[in-house]
Amino acid sequence: MAVNTELQGTSYALPEPYEVSREAIAAFARATQSHDAAHTDPQAARALGYADVVAPPTFAVIPAQRAEARYISLPEAGIDFSRVVHGSEQFSYTRPIVAGDVLSAVCHVDGLREAGGHAMITTRTEIADAHAAPVVTVTSTIVVRGGDDD
């Protein structure tokens, strides 16, 4: 099944906002070997001027990938996930994520092109806080490898 290029320009929002907890930040920091005290100690975070513990720079991938999954898992998107390879990733922060944030995420399918039997898909997920103020933009490129039988 071929990737559906007609979905370029479509957008997919998380149905419910992602609520950032201290526990989620601590677990993500431990998993990414991020030992800065500001990830786990509210006092250390406040000493640096943050409202609460601060997420590591790639933490935004959690709400971003949930929003991306709204698109990637659509049957009409035509994406065989077993053939997906992650091509690139970028985080552009307006402000860091802290515990207590309630984040919305909208994934925009910005680029969708086929070349040599493969498809390259660029998504841009805009993450904002409860006041609709921008927090971080996550840009991701995936490659859907063509099969021998295509």
Partner: peptide, 17 residues
């Protein structure tokens, strides 16, 4: 982050796999 002194000091981070 350790070099920068704070997690929020990383304003942009990008890579290709």
């Amino acid at each position: 982050v350790e070099w920068a002194g704070a997690p929020g000091a990383v304003l942009d981070y990008r890579t290709r796999f």
